[in-house]
Design a protein around this nucleic acid. Structure first.
Lengths: 152, 152
DNA sequence: TCCTCCAAGGTCAGACAAAGTCAAAACTCA
DNA sequence: TGAGTTTTGACTTTGTCTGACCTTGGAGGA
């Protein structure tokens, strides 16, 4: 017997179709499948994760919604690049990587400057090992975004 | 179901058009949209905030009015704007401010997205009060840079 | 002049209407 | 049988909308 979560996943994929995003109502969906609303969250949390290429946005309150967004994948070699950042990242190394990105035309000079400011030593004012860990995390997210190829 | 607040927001934005300010009558507007007058205040309070680049002025009594003023970002209130970030900054508030910066053509859509990713909840994975403090610091640096070209 | 009334707009708490969280119970499968 | 996965439901948080009551300012009359 197929699991409900899988059925709901298939349903959502089908609903997505060729579109890159879709709006659903958590409660309606739950009632359609006669399950607890939190089951929908479970499906979203386990099947529509960032590493499978999905983002979830939502709003609570009256007229609330849940939006599933598909972020087009590019290559897998790029995961290696993201991983190469490691757990800590110095300002100098980040600058090198930003320059590389600029040479590859993945970012503009202005974007490079903004990011240098945003993740500068001064902006991340905290103990150094912590600082470099935070910088690494932020930078990985940026890389993921830039490399994931939704080139608008 | 489209939310009334969103509809009223759109209406007001359209009424503003290219102008930098517009006068409305709270009661007339409420009656036009068949809603409680306080709904107008709700829209004003949640959508036309300083974070998004608006100021509200009003006067009570006979001949009273409500004025929506769009404040050009670059004017001279730079310090006030940077200060308005405060010691902590939620993702949502940052998003509003980024949208405002984009409207003022101080950043592009791509730059906005990069910064949203860089300073997302996921990127700043740490206790929430710490996270919002870090975000505030980074964002202030960005603002300073964008507004003054000050990149120290 | 001053006072009173009326015509604005303001505030706030509460009713709803969503979605989120978390942990316990139930289930699966090696 | 035990670890991992799924399902459920009680409780929380957030966003929207309304209505009762409050405050302010101006106009006009005594």
């Amino acid at each position: 017997m197929a699991k409900l979560s899988d059925i709901i996943e298939q349903f959502l994929l089908k609903t997505l179709g060729d579109e890159n995003e879709v709006d659903i109502s958590r409660n309606e969906l739950a009632s359609f499948f006669s399950c607890a609303p939190s089951q929908i969250n479970y499906v979203l949390d386990t099947r529509f994760t960032i590493d499978r290429g999905y983002l979830i946005e939502s709003q609570r309150g009256g007229g609330g919604f849940v939006k599933i967004i598909r972020v087009p994948f590019k290559d897998d070699a790029e995961n290696a690049i993201v991983e190469s950042v490691g757990g800590e990242l110095s300002f100098k190394r980040m600058t090198h990587m930003l320059e590389n990105l600029q040479n590859e035309n993945l970012i503009t000079n202005h974007e490079k400057e903004i990011l240098q400011v945003a993740l500068s030593e001064a902006a991340l004012e905290m103990p150094i090992n912590l600082r470099e860990a935070v910088r690494a995390k932020c930078f990985k997210r940026i890389l993921l975004f830039l490399l994931k190829g939704n080139d608008q």
